Simulated assay, not measured.
Amino acid sequence: MTADGNTPPGIHRSGHAHTTMYLVADGDGVTVVDTGLPAAWPVPLRALRAIGTEPEQVRAVVPTHAHFDHLGLAERLRGQWRVPVWAHPEENFVAAHPSQYQHENSRLWYPLRHPGGVPVLAGMVAAGAPTVNGVTEPSELVPGQELGIPGHPRAVFTPGHCAPRLPGHDAVTTGDALVALAPYPGGAGPQSVSGAATADSARALDSLQALAATRAAVVFPGHGRPWREGVLSAAERAAAAGPP
């Protein structure tokens, strides 16, 4: 587990197997944004202790999207901690079957062309990527809706994602809509997700505009380190780079 002490007060970032989860805390409790992979079960427990809270204070889980490496612990948290897991209705099938999502390019092609991504993918497999359970009872997340949960996230719709905007922290959590580490090619820096993880790279690039429109000062991606030079600069770099 890694933790980032440089996040703003009220946000705790923890990483495991090249995936990231965020705890957003305020006086009403804690919201978990993204949940990593099954082997990351100790991560939220340690993170809660680090910020002086307990599982009983977790009020909700908000995955940015329903891919296996963001939904890994969601069903376990829902069942054991009795908290809702919020998902866009278009994500219901993938939320129930988190490994069965469409993608443009074969996942087998990337290790051959981008060997730098092999350690990332191997770490995810070792952390239980093939064994992620789907979420059986998601709560409906509406784009533009401000959720009445800790952090008061507002769902910014990007195709395949609802990126939670955290207005109290001038931040946006972007999942795979904008990453700082591309799991399949393994490259670092602001970029769009690869064709192994999206069904439409052109649409994924277009979605950067919705993120840029938030004008958030900090980007918290699903993979890689936070980007503190503003979402506008991150989106510009990702758009200029094109699909990895």
Rank of each mutant, 00 (worst) to 15 (best):
A3Q: 09
G5P: 12
G5F: 01
G5M: 09
T7F: 01
T7Y: 02
P8A: 01
G10D: 08
G15Q: 10
H16W: 15
T19H: 05
T20G: 02
M21H: 07
G27I: 02
G29S: 05
G29A: 07
T31Y: 05
V32K: 00
P38W: 06
W41G: 10
W41S: 11
P44Q: 09
L48S: 10
L48V: 07
L48C: 12
A50D: 15
P55N: 08
Q57M: 08
V58H: 08
V62A: 07
H65V: 08
H65L: 10
A66T: 14
A66L: 03
H67G: 02
F68Y: 14
G72T: 00
A74D: 02
A74S: 15
E75W: 00
R78M: 06
R78P: 12
W81Y: 11
P84H: 02
N92W: 15
N92A: 15
F93G: 12
V94N: 09
V94H: 04
A95G: 08
S99T: 13
Y101V: 03
Q102Y: 01
E104I: 06
S106A: 13
P115Y: 11
A126S: 13
A127Q: 10
G128L: 11
T136N: 12
P138A: 02
E140P: 02
L141Q: 08
P143S: 08
G144N: 07
P150W: 01
G151A: 12
G151L: 06
F157H: 14
T158Q: 13
G160S: 02
A163L: 03
P164C: 05
L166Y: 06
H169N: 05
A171N: 09
T173E: 10
T174E: 05
A177D: 01
L178M: 02
A182D: 04
P183M: 05
P185K: 01
G186K: 05
A197L: 14
T198E: 12
A199Q: 06
D200T: 09
D200N: 14
A202S: 12
R203E: 15
L205S: 10
Q209F: 00
A213M: 03
R215N: 14
A217F: 03
V218Q: 11
V219I: 11
P221W: 04
G224Y: 05
P226A: 13
V231W: 01
S233H: 10
S233I: 00
A234L: 06
A235W: 00
E236C: 15
A239E: 00
A240Q: 08
